[in-house]
Each structure stands twice: as structure tokens, then as C-alpha cells.
Design a protein around this nucleic acid. Structure first.
Lengths: 205, 205, 205, 205
DNA sequence: TATGAATGAGCTTTCATTCAT
DNA sequence: AATGAATGAAAGCTCATTCAT
């Protein structure tokens, strides 16, 4: 069989191919978020990446380490997304609404408490610490936005950290599905509006 | 520490002994709530009950069935506790505060969303259905209380189901611990007050 | 609910009810023949009998003993059936045909070699001996019929024991089903005729 | 007797060593044939191969799959042996005699009906199908030989498939042992001769 | 006569991890 | 950088058997 001749100067490696380590992390993140730590084996990750288990271990020394990295990667991404939305210039309430809507539209429920529970149950002291630090930054990001709006006078004075937590907690209400798979509200947009309205009654001016 | 050796066959009747089946369910419930479905093995349950695995299987045909029963048992207990508190004659807001405080004082975080996630990931269709039904009753209980208070005029008209969900969601904020193990509020009483205050601003009159 | 009045003098126990021990043996025999020794548990037998496992053990001290009894019971029944057919006055060849047809019409394949293999693999020395004795009687029954016909001159002189074995072996050909479940012959009657024809060419005059 | 301890991970290359997968299959085949599906555990196979259970599972995903492969491997080997014998140029009857003698001289009884029964009782639909296909080829091989001899005029015209089955069935008569372990004939050679003589009376010219 | 409760040993399967290549 | 081969430990589950009632 004749091989098609190589283009001059072009490297053998596919230019579009992501470095394996990144592929592994991304794939693992998706799997862990969807199915949880204990329900995803290193083999599952390997298969989904089209590499062997040993390759995973080449980049991540233990499953716990991989999960730690995955959680941190996830939280960073969420934090970036939140920052991008909060940076906009439209009114705070509208930004919050967008924030909720965007998250509810994602395929998987991002419930920090779930992930922290799995982390606490399955990771080592030092890994838990790292994850906690990442979680903390996420909360801080929202907390700071709250702080700024307090100073601006958009919302009432109060415990900004508490507000950050209540906000994220209320957001998870939008994920709820009953036994038949029905959501509380018909669309994510409506859900987002109702949730932020509720939040706003407590904190808004 | 060696356990008292058991003999084969039916044990001699001990009038004071609780029926084994109940012991198993109670023990399993505690373990599952604390450590999660995948982190508790049937052997763990057996050891904690001071019986053998086979005994557990004598009463519960699969681990999934045991978990299902455990979750339902837990939800029923919570529901009873909630009913007892809501039945009192003091003002609604105070009853809500007591409700939050009592739950935050329990040793383990009762986060419905956690349990439902584990259920969804690990149980069979029909088992999930049963657990969902039980969860539903729990939400309904609070929802009805909200409905009554709406009719009484204590709180604003609105979506009672949504209120039930936001309330339980806000409650979980009280369980939050940061990396150093610090809570958001110093005592459960303060936490309860702040949480219900927040809720009340949105729904109260 | 009113009970229908008891007929005078009639005993409480249902007159039609077979003694439990017999029910157990019959049920076990059916199950073992169909599914094999290792695929039938004492629990299966108990359930099929509508009694508890302990009841089975009350009558049969071990599973091996129950299997031994079941095999012997089966062989006896088959032997009786064979005797009944061979006792008739019609020509030997016709009797053989009836014998084959009757067996092929039974729901389960009666293949002595199967049962003896399971016996050898799973029973104790002494149990195997008993089963072997029973098997021997079965072969002897046919062997004797062959002997008689030899003396009558219906069939050629030869090794009657060998003839008994070849005959039973050829019979199992009729049970054969290919991958799609098709038999070698369309009806049991045709199969019986062909098998006996084959046998007769070797031994008949 | 303690086995030479193995270390974790990939073993050092030994050029003389047979590939493990083949060792496993061969060993498993022997064990299954001798003791049956249910009487051989994956641990038994592992121990006999001097590897761990996990190694077996590395090559064969389930016990059923291993059994399927083992049966197919066995049938293929038998088929090859049969082909080699039937290919010879000596008279058909003599070839048949050799065929029977060779098989009776093997240590274990090769009774297709036994194996098919165990397969039917313990394997999945698709596995049964594969085994059936393999069995079919085996019968076909003999059937074709019969067909050729019919055309040559060595044996009578007739149902070649039926002849193949009767032949293999008659062969199993040679394996028979009574309670004291005595065979029907003193040597395999005599048994082979008698069996083929019997067969030949029916089909030969 | 019959049962309910319990066990110990075994089974199939899974999985995180290791290591020579 | 990546892999194939192997392991030890544990998990869920089954089953023959025992024994007080």
C-alpha cells in the first residue's frame, strides 16, 4: 500500500491533536461529573480517551490525583464562566439571571455540595485541601461581586459570603426533577427568572 | 478486638434483642448516610450489625434493595420530624427556625440532592421510583405547610412547591464547612435564624 | 367468613394431599433432570415444593442424598415404563419403536450418560454406587429382553449387554437439535422408526 | 507446597514461555472437559495455570466466554483429528475403526451431548450459538465422509447426517463403565471393532 | 412435622495499581 | 511517551448446611 506523500516541513504529529494529558483530564472531568468518583473506573477513563490505563497512570499517579485535578479543572472553568458573565455592564440582577440560565442549560447538574461530598469521602487530606481551596475561590468570586454591589448600593448590606452560598444553593433548585423527570419550571429562562427574583427579594433594594 | 463467636443455625431466643431485620436497616441507614452507597460494603453493614453478610442477604435480597429501604426509612423519619415541628402552634417563622436548627444539629448533613444522585446512579428503575415517591412526600409535606400559610395570609401567594424547594436548599447552606472546618455561622441557632430571615424576606409578609 | 361445614368423620388433612416427602422427591426429580445438579439449589427445590429449605433437610440429609434418590426414582420409573412396553405381545421391533417414540415424546431428554456424569462428579462413593446399581438394573431390563429375543430367534445371537447399550445410545440421537432447534426427523414417530430400523439392520434377522 | 512468588506488573520476558492466553485456554479446556462447567471455578483454572484469577479475566471477560472458547477449541481439535484419520487411503471401515479406537484411548470421555447440555444450561444465547456452530462443523465433517462413501458405493444410500449422529452416538458406548469400573470390552481395539461392526451392519454394503 | 434465622465458605467479577519494555 | 501483562484485595452474591423452636 502506498502512503500518501508527506507535505514538506509539516510535523508528523497531527497539529489538531491535543496533548494526551489534556485529553485525559478533560475526558475524566466529564465522566466524573456525570457518573461520580466511584462509578468511573480508571479503565473507563482510559477507554473514553482511547489510550490504555497505563497511560493514565503515566500522567496521574493515582485515581485520587486525577479526580482532584478534574474537580479543580471543573471549578476553574465554572469560575471563568462566572467571571465572564459578571464582568458585563448590564444590571446586576440581569447578570445573575444569565448566570443561572447558563448553568441550568448545561447538560449536567453542577452541584458543588455533591462534588465536595465525594471528595471528602474518597480523597486524601492533602487532596481535599486542594479541592477546598479551589471551591473557596469559586465562592470568593461571587462573594466579591456581591461585595461590590453592596458598595454600589444595588443590594442591601449583609454577609456577602452568606449571599454567595444562598445564591448557589438556590441555583440547584433549578436542576430538580421529580419522579417523572419533570422540572419545576418549563424552561431554563423561566427558572432562572424565578430563582433570581426569589433571591432578589431578600437581597435587592 | 475479637467478636463473640456465633454458632451456626438459629440463635437462642433473647427476649430483649431487637429483631435483626430492624437492626440491619437502622445500621445500614446510618452508614449509608454518612459514607455513601459505594463506600459502604455489605460486609461493612454486616460487621456493624455483628452478623454475617449472609444474614443481611437473608433480609434484603440485594444491596440496592437495602439502600432503597434505608433511604425511604430515612426520609420517613425526617418527614415525621418535620411534621412534629410544623404541627406546633407557634408562629410559622419560628417553626421554620426550629426546623432548620434541629436539622443542622444532627450529626450528618441531610442533603436530599446527594441521596437522590446516588440513588439515580446506583439503583434500578423501580427502586429509583420508590425513592422518588418517598422524596416527593417529603417535599409535599413542606409544600402543604406553605400552602396553608399562604391561605392564612402569613406568607405571600406564590408557588408553594418552589418555596418548599428553596427552603430545603437554603437549609443546606447551614451545613457548609470551609477547608479549615469552619461553618458560616458560629452556632446552629444563629445559622437557623439567618437562613430563615433570608427565606422570610422573600416569602413573608 | 363462614367456613363450609366439615363433613362428618372426614379427616382434617386433605385426602388428595400427597405426603410431603413424596412431593419433594417428585419435584426435585423434575428439576434435576431439566436443569442439572449444580443449577438447582436446595432453595429452588424448596420453593417449587412450597415448603422451606429446612423441610427438605428434614427428609433428605444432604443435597447429594436428594439427588441420589431423585436419580434412582427416575430410573425406576423409566424401567417400569420400559417393562410395560416390552411386556406387550406385539412383534419385538414394534415394541422397540413404541419404546423410542414414547421417550422422544417426553419433554426432557433422558440421557443416562448425562446423569451418570453429574453423579460421578458430585456424589460420594457410596451414593455413586447406589446410582450405578439402579442404572445397571435399567440396562439389565433391556438386556434381558434382548436375550429372550435371541433365544426366540427374532434377533441374531450376540452380546446382549452391548445391544442394550447401543439401543439406548441410538435413542438419544432422536433428541438432537441443531442451532436453530430443528430435529433430525420431523416427528417422533418417524425418528423412532428410523432409529429402530437402523438398530434392526444390525441385530434383526 | 508454596508456589514461586510472583511480582506485581509485567513479568520479564521469557522467550521459551508459551503465551499465557494459550496456556489458559489449554488448561481450562482440560479442566472443563474433565470436571464440567460448574465444578471448575475461575480460581481452579488460575491455580492450574500458576497465575491469578485476575490474569484469567485479563484474557477472557467472563467464565462463559472462557468455556465457550474452550469448547470450540476442543471441537476444533477433535475435528482435525477426525479429518486426519479419514483422509487416509485405507478402506472406510478401517478408518472408522481407527477413529473410534483413537477416541476411546483418550483419557476423557468426549461426549458431545454432555458438553452441549452444559453449554445450553450455562451460556448466553450468543455463546450457545457459537458452540452450536462449532458442533455443527464437527458433525458435518463426518457427514461429508459418509456422503462420499455413499457415492463411491462403499455404504448404502441414506441420510448421511443421521449416519454421522448414529456413528458418534455408538462411539460413546465404548466409554461406558459399570459400577466396578469395568468396560464392556476388554481393550479399546476390541471395542472399536465391535462398535464399527455394529455400525457397518446397518450402513455397509 | 416443619420452620425461621443464621453461618462459613465459595463463587464470579471489578478495580486500582505495578512494572518491564 | 505509551503500553501490555499481571496482581492483590475486595465487592456482591449464592448456597449447602445447622439448629432452636
Amino acid at each position: 500500500m502506498k502512503q500518501s506523500p508527506r507535505v514538506l516541513g509539516r510535523p508528523r504529529n497531527d497539529i489538531n491533536a491535543k496533548p494526551t494529558k489534556a485529553v485525559v483530564l478533560e475526558t475524566a472531568t466529564k465522566l466524573f461529573i456525570k457518573e461520580g468518583y466511584k462509578n468511573i473506573s480508571m479503565d473507563d477513563v482510559a477507554k473514553a480517551c482511547n489510550v490504555t490505563k497505563a497511560t493514565i497512570y503515566y500522567y496521574y499517579p493515582t485515581k485520587g490525583e486525577l479526580y482532584t485535578s478534574a474537580l479543580i479543572e471543573m471549578m476553574n472553568k465554572i469560575r471563568q464562566a462566572i467571571i465572564r458573565i459578571l464582568e458585563q455592564s448590564k444590571p446586576f440582577k440581569e447578570r445573575l439571571e444569565e448566570l443561572v440560565e447558563v448553568h441550568l442549560s448545561a447538560t449536567v447538574a453542577i452541584d458543588m455540595k455533591n462534588f465536595m461530598r465525594e471528595a471528602t469521602m474518597n480523597l486524601s487530606e492533602s487532596q481535599i485541601l486542594k479541592v477546598h481551596a479551589s471551591e473557596n475561590e469559586l465562592y470568593k468570586t461571587i462573594q466579591q461581586a456581591m461585595q461590590i454591589e453592596m458598595e454600589k448600593g444595588t443590594i442591601h448590606q449583609g454577609n456577602a459570603e452568606f449571599f454567595a452560598h444562598t445564591f448557589l444553593s438556590l441555583m440547584t433548585v433549578g436542576y430538580f426533577k421529580d419522579g417523572e423527570g419533570n422540572r419545576l419550571f418549563q424552561t431554563e429562562a423561566i427558572a432562572a427568572k424565578e430563582i433570581v427574583d426569589f433571591f432578589w427579594k431578600s437581597v435587592g433594594k
